[in-house]
């Protein structure tokens, strides 16, 4: 297959309320190639989860896609009827959410949930489905799957449960996985295990992964490219190494500086962290021009007047007027 597997163009997600329409995602464009992991990072309220939800067609009403298009392997999937979208979910797009407990039904065994999902999407016999379920559990690293397949979700530990959720997302070999904060509820040691699992999926099966998280560390470990979101817009998008080591957008730079780092010279107060003053605006009070301009240390007149689009700077692109006349 040539070209991106997932292509999102100028996506706009709105929430009509009686006090006016809130724009939660505003003109987001991104693409993911097969086998690529795209990280989407941002602070709470940046619109990263809603972008994911819009792609899998699970926006909570009254939220709706107001503009833009979403293409999966070249085919538009936004605005599809519910039934059709339901078939695409699971079959072609797998979803992993933050809390493994809410993604699993406590009343059914893990095996029942896996085989049911497999049978719903693939034309196989129940016996073959169970064989596949066992293979999936082994694939995600659950020891002794034969013994574990008939256990209920509560009999698994947190880390193992999240593996089961990953297995569930993989049932129909989807080409795309949307993982929304898959490691946030987990301890660091287990977090590392789930990250390794996602990476292996992308490398070995050519699965495209959209990894939504607030944790830049997880992105650095996992993603190939990263999109940084701020107030519903993509502030910067580019290869992970570039964005982390040479952030172009002042927001990304501030964000990177504000992350405490482990290492030499710990303790004895290594001075202050970089601090972005203020807070992300509420959706009903997004400033005109660049949404970041009131907090930006490098702002100038144009920033408050005109909204910047993504401007290519080397291999990355930043929505910032600093780069209007070339890098």
């Amino acid at each position: 297959m040539s070209g991106p597997l997932l292509e999102v163009k100028d996506l706009r997600v709105e929430f009509p309320t009686r006090r006016g329409t809130l724009v939660a995602v505003d003109g987001a464009s991104l693409a993911i190639a097969p086998g690529e992991i795209l990280g989407v990072v941002g602070e709470s309220g940046a619109g990263k989860s809603l972008t994911g939800m819009a792609i899998i067609g699970l926006l909570e009403p009254p939220g709706r896609i107001a503009a833009g298009e979403i293409r999966l392997a070249g085919e538009r999937i936004d605005g599809l009827p519910y039934e059709q979208m339901r078939r695409i979910r699971g079959r072609r797009i797998g979803a992993i959410f933050q809390d493994p407990l809410t993604s699993l039904n406590p009343l059914f065994t893990v095996g029942e949930q896996l085989t049911e999902t497999i049978l719903a999407h693939l034309e196989v016999t129940p016996a073959a489905a169970r064989t596949r379920a066992l293979a999936l559990l082994a694939e995600v690293g659950i020891p002794a799957p034969q013994a574990r397949i008939d256990h209920y979700p509560h009999q698994f530990s947190g880390g193992m449960r999240q593996r089961v959720v990953v297995a569930l997302a993989l049932c129909a070999e989807p080409r795309l996985i949307i993982a929304d904060e898959p490691t946030t509820a987990l301890d660091v040691s287990i977090q590392a295990q789930i990250i390794a699992l996602l990476r292996r999926l992308a490398r070995e099966h050519g699965t495209a992964v959209m990894l939504i998280t607030h944790d830049m560390g997880v992105i650095a470990e996992t993603a190939d490219r990263v999109a940084v979101m701020y107030a519903g817009r993509i502030a910067e998008i580019g290869p992970v190494r570039e964005v982390i080591h040479a952030p172009r957008h002042p927001y990304t730079a501030g964000l990177m500086g504000s992350i405490p780092k482990v290492g030499r010279g710990a303790g004895k107060k290594r001075g202050r962290l970089v601090q972005i003053e203020g807070a992300m605006p509420r959706l009903n009070a997004i400033p005109p021009g660049c949404a970041f301009n009131p907090r930006c240390p490098q702002r100038f007149a144009r920033c408050a007047a005109e909204r910047p689009e993504l401007i290519a700077v080397g291999t990355t692109a930043a929505a910032c007027w600093l780069y209007a006349d070339g890098p």
Partner: peptide, 9 residues
Amino acid sequence: LDAIPDLEM
């Protein structure tokens, strides 16, 4: 310490 995601890559 090993499990901390490595920001420096």
